[in-house]
Write a protein that binds this DNA or RNA. Structure first.
Length: 403
DNA sequence: CGAGATTCATGTGAAGTATACCTTTAGGCTTAA
DNA sequence: AAGCCTAAAGGTATACTTCACATGAATCTCGTA
């Protein structure tokens, strides 16, 4: 491709009018000025957190609700309002937000605490320090001056499921030793029965207060989408029915507003890239596939080699008509792939764990079943649409430099 | 025929190992008085 | 003598291995109707 051709693309892009007015309004990290249909929850949370402004420690709160019901925005919105007031009145309040999703950043006790300490601009190495030491560093930072800290732990069900509730126990007890400062926890969980697996002591101190988030219904979803679309897009860019379709999609997914907004954004991007003047209903279908594909591609790409090889083995076995496959089969194929890739094969014990991890990531389904006389194993099936599987396969092949 | 024993293939927990990285400490060298 | 650098010692988290035992329903066994 010559330079002038590239130039042409940029020229065309610049001359073409954007469909968006302000795209970041549709991004999931965006906290809107006003939240629709969450007044009740915001009020509850605000009442619980209000003592902070008098430098009294608010109760720990637990926010429950399915994905995309506004838990995270409600928490960030309410706390940022508190922060605003606190700044005006010179009240030392610090808000820390940590997402514990299995992101390799915060998926063990050590890494979460290290992440917390980093919020205070402390350098924490990836390994080498005792966990206790990192706790102390964090603790000293918190207690270094008089202040009130509100710690938001998003998706903590994932974390606790993986590494147990010790962190929670330690964090809930931290106030006992704090001299100058105080710390409140806001836990956010998608899993409604998550606290059942917690140590009763942790459970009682963690959920001193609870706020439940019901799903949005179709009309509420439409409201939210309309409002945001109004800010995000230019006028008359959205074809009639598009909003309704996105909302319907959200309703299908138990009122998941986050996905609905994402759908709208990606549909807009697709329309823009195709050089069209309007976002059409068709674009939503493309967007739906693209979102799923991007999600899976992202997960797969960031996995370590061993996990990728295991996944590749599962995928290549799964070719034949959705027959379920078993751990033993996967392991055999995995070993041959390892030699091809030049990877040292792990033991079956470890591969078994890796399969369980891949299940947690939602790329495959793995269920332990007893087949009676024929032993016990995991029934494994692929949990991504057939349409995007070939794409994932090629990504894995490239990453593993296989043919 | 049916209750209880057996069996299979792997799940699962605990303990041990290798690796990469951390802090502390002791020794050796340099430097300034 | 004080200060600084370096390398060894001792410690940790993480990913993995090794070992040993747990699982749980299909199948087998054997006593009984």
């Amino acid at each position: 491709m010559s330079e002038s051709q590239v130039h042409g693309i940029f020229e065309k892009f610049m001359s073409q009018e954007s469909l968006f007015q302000d795209k970041k309004v549709l991004q999931s990290s965006y906290t809107p000025e006003a939240l629709l249909h969450r007044d009740e929850e915001i009020n509850q949370l605000a009442k619980i957190l209000a003592p902070a402004l008098r430098m009294e420690r608010p109760s720990n709160v637990f926010l429950y609700g399915k994905t995309g019901t506004g838990k995270t925005v409600t928490a960030t919105y309410t706390t940022s309002e508190i922060k605003k007031i606190a700044e005006q009145k010179n009240i030392p309040i610090k808000i820390i937000y940590i997402n514990c999703k299995l992101s390799r950043v915060a998926d063990t006790e050590y890494r979460v605490i290290a992440q917390l300490a980093r919020e205070f601009e402390k350098e924490i190495p990836a390994t080498g320090l005792p966990t206790d030491e990192v706790y102390k560093i964090f603790f000293r930072s918190v207690d270094s001056k008089e202040q009130l800290i509100i710690l938001i732990l998003d998706e903590i069900d994932q974390l606790v499921k993986k590494v147990g509730d010790e962190i929670m126990y330690n964090l809930t007890r931290i106030n006992i030793n704090l001299k100058q400062s105080q710390l409140s926890l806001i836990g956010i969980s998608n899993d409604l029965v998550f606290t059942d697996h917690l140590d009763p002591r942790v459970k009682s101190s963690l959920s001193e207060e609870e706020v439940i988030f019901p799903p949005y219904n179709a009309i509420q979803s439409q409201d939210i989408l309309r409002r945001r679309a109004g800010y995000a897009f230019k006028e008359n860019v959205i074809e009639a029915g598009v909003i309704e379709k996105c909302a319907a999609y959200a309703a299908r997914e138990h009122g998941d507003a986050r996905r609905a907004l994402e759908l709208l954004r990606v549909a807009g991007e697709i329309a823009e890239r195709n050089g069209e003047r309007q976002v059409k209903i068709d674009h939503i279908d493309y967007a739906e596939e693209k979102i799923e594909r991007d999600r899976v591609v992202d997960i797969v790409k960031t996995q370590p080699k061993q996990q990728q090889t295991t996944l590749y083995s599962i995928f290549s076995l799964y070719n034949d008509k959705n027959a379920v496959i078993y751990t033993g089969d996967v392991y055999d194929v995995y070993k041959t792939h390892c030699t091809k890739v030049g990877l040292y094969p792990l033991t079956q014990r470890r591969v078994s764990d890796i399969i369980a991890e891949l299940d947690m990531l939602g790329i495959i389904n793995a269920k332990v079943v007893s087949k009676g006389r024929f032993g016990r194993t995991r029934e494994i099936s692929v949990a991504i649409p057939q349409t995007i599987k070939p794409k994932i396969m090629t990504i894995l092949q490239q990453s593993l430099s296989l043919e």
